Simulated assay, not measured.
Amino acid sequence: MSVPIGVELVRKTVPVYHPKTHLTTYQSPTTKNEYLQQLLRVAQQQVAYRYLLADSWYASAENMHLVRALGHHFVFALESSRTVALSAQARAAGQFQAVQTLVFPDTQPLRVYLRSVREEVLVSRQVFTNQDGSQGILYLVSSDTDLNQAQLTAIYQRRWKVEEYHKSLKQNASMSNCCYALPGWRA
């Protein structure tokens, strides 16, 4: 079941002057990651969930640590430039490489170490063919190292329900004309 449990309307009240363009834009005094962390702490008391699903915007080490500290697992999209170590020894030696350079055997996830995350994580690669024939690659990272590729994919696909919710808010309630909703995550 997919049920949105929180939406934060972002109020952009802090003026930021850009000297090159001589324009002033506005930003929120609270970052999207800070909103997510606040929501997770509140949800911890009210919602039972096993996985937090989010796009790469939220795949910070700080968010990963918080999810694990709260007793849950995460499945996040991961930027291709994110670096990993292939073993605990490589991590200790500072031997990191970009996720996009990894070789994934038989489309199976790899157990790796992210630079700022204590625990071993699972990283997978999914290759998609777009409507125009081009290929896209999605990298996923999970704290649940017992998952296989099919399970990881199935879990992450559930995140798209949130995207449908946001699309509906923007189209049916004209939310995009007045403010911005916190990008998708689901419990």
Rank of each mutant, 00 (worst) to 15 (best):
A93I: 10
E79A: 09
S116F: 10
A92R: 12
L70Y: 10
Y49M: 07
R111H: 14
S80A: 15
V103D: 10
A54V: 06
R82I: 06
A85G: 05
Q45F: 14
D106V: 07
A90I: 04
L86T: 08
N63Q: 08
R115W: 02
A90M: 09
T83A: 10
S56I: 09
V112P: 00
V75Q: 04
Q89A: 15
M64W: 05
V75S: 01
Y58D: 02
L52H: 05
A98Q: 12
Q44V: 01
R118N: 13
Y58T: 02
L70M: 08
A43M: 13
F74M: 10
R111Y: 00
H72V: 11
S116Q: 15
A59H: 06
L39A: 12
Q44C: 03
W57D: 03
F74Y: 15
L39T: 12
S81Y: 08
V112C: 02
R82F: 09
L52S: 07
H65Q: 15
A90E: 08
R82W: 04
A69D: 12
P105E: 05
A90G: 00
A54K: 02
T107S: 14
N63R: 08
Q45A: 09
V75G: 00
T107G: 10
L114M: 10
A69K: 15
L40C: 07
N63G: 03
T101G: 00
Q45T: 12
R50T: 13
V42C: 11
V117L: 14
R68P: 00
Y58R: 02
F76L: 09
